Amino acid sequence: MTSEPQALPLHATLYEAARVMRDKGIGDVLVTDGERLCGMVTDRDIVVRAVAERRNTVFTSLAEVCTAELAVLGPDDDTDTAVRLMREHAVRRLPVVDGRHRPIGIVTVGDLMLAGLDGPGPLSEISKAPPGL
């Protein structure tokens, strides 16, 4: 798990999210309402849901394009749960939230591969699946 994931509030703009992604070398930003996780926006979301639709990234809020229906993990969930959720939801990233639904981390397919779960099987299936997030 990557701890301390990058997060921005719902009212932040796509431009702000893109700058965070560039500056941190990441492909996603969690979206929060107060301290609670309420969505995620990825570099792909910015391209497909905003740039391709000719939205102005300086004025378009994360609330307008983020994915709000997220599969999430709890801090005590194991890697099998992460793999299962990634497969079921065809996603490559899973936010980790605490009991109050505050983001505390993010697990990616890359994290699972680094944990020694690579090779043929579920992770290769997830990697081949069309992107969901």
Rank of each mutant, 00 (worst) to 15 (best):
R54E: 13
R49W: 06
V47S: 12
R55I: 04
T42I: 07
H89L: 00
L73R: 06
A50S: 10
G74T: 09
A52L: 11
V58C: 05
P75G: 09
M86W: 07
R54A: 13
L62F: 14
L85M: 11
T57C: 15
L62W: 10
A68N: 12
D45N: 03
L85V: 06
T81E: 09
E88N: 07
L85T: 08
R54Y: 11
T79L: 03
G74R: 12
C66N: 06
V47D: 01
V51P: 00
E53Q: 14
A71H: 11
V72H: 02
D76R: 13
G74V: 02
R87M: 06
F59W: 01
A68T: 14
V72T: 15
D80H: 10
T57G: 14
A82W: 03
D80E: 15
D77E: 09
I46Y: 01
V72F: 00
R84C: 04
V58A: 15
V58S: 09
A52C: 13
E64Q: 14
N56W: 08
L73A: 06
G74F: 02
L70N: 05
T81Y: 04
A71D: 08
A63G: 07
T60V: 09
D80K: 12
R84L: 09
A82H: 06
V83L: 10
D45P: 02
D76Y: 11
A50N: 06
C66R: 04
R84W: 08
A50P: 03
V58K: 14
D43K: 03
T81S: 10
L85S: 04
D80R: 10
L70W: 05
T42V: 06
A52Q: 07
V41M: 01
D76A: 14
A82G: 08
E53M: 08
D45H: 03
V65H: 07
I46R: 00
A50D: 02
A82T: 05
R55S: 00
D78H: 13
L73Q: 07
E69Q: 15
R54I: 02
R44Y: 08
V51N: 05
T79C: 09
R84A: 12
T81L: 07
D78Q: 12
A82E: 03
T42Q: 08
T67D: 08
A68W: 10
V47E: 00
L62I: 06
S61F: 05
T57E: 11
D80P: 00
N56P: 06
V58I: 07
F59E: 13
T57P: 10
E53I: 01
V58D: 10
A63F: 04
L73C: 05
C66W: 00
L73E: 04
V83S: 02
V58T: 11
T67P: 13
A82M: 05
L73D: 02
H89R: 13
T42D: 04
C66L: 02
E64G: 01
V58R: 15
F59I: 00
H89V: 02
L62D: 01
L73G: 05
G74W: 00
A63M: 11
D77L: 10
V47K: 02
A50F: 04
A52S: 14
T67F: 12
E88C: 01
E53G: 06
T67G: 10
